[in-house]
Amino acid sequence: MEFVSFDWWQFFIRWCHILCGVMWIGHLWYFNFTQTPTMPKIPAELRPGVSKYILPEALFWFRWGAMGTIVFGLILAWMNGYLGSAIKLGIGDGSLHNTTIGFGMWLGTIMWFNVWFIIWPGQKKNLGIVQATPDEVKKATRTAGLASRVNTMLSIPMLYCMAGVHVY
């Protein structure tokens, strides 16, 4: 039955990878294109509406979107048979496809690391989930903001590799 063939499962995992990826990068771009530039323009008394209600919810979908993307992405690369080759950037394999997807995977992995080990720990201090002094909060928020901008920058070549791999 075609519905349960290996090809169908490959498609299903790719679909899950894309769904999570849109959830992740959609929120990343929301933070960088919309929320961060708009916050200074919002009257001070209205800002808690964003920082206390929208931000925690957005960060939840943002970080778990990142987790789902990398998990389904690794499963997909394994199912497609190029996980090992892509991890070593296709070096020695003479495959433009595997080198391209390898660069995309490594860029995505750096971004995932930034989300879970720099941005989220910093935001936990900013949101008061983790106790910190005002100086620590300021420093953590700045570091998280810069890591978020690094991810926005990396998302451009990462998506080139992810989408462009089908050309090679």
Binding site: N32, P37, T99
Partner: peptide
């Protein structure tokens, strides 16, 4: 000196430049 990542426009420009670098690296490696 101001960090270029503080500007959204410069962040996007750096992302495009990095894309060109990545494409050149891909073709150099493969």
């Amino acid at each position: 000196m101001k960090n270029p990542l503080d500007s959204l426009g410069q962040t996007i420009t750096l992302g495009v430049v990095l894309t060109v670098v990545v494409v050149l690296l891909i073709h150099a490696i493969a």
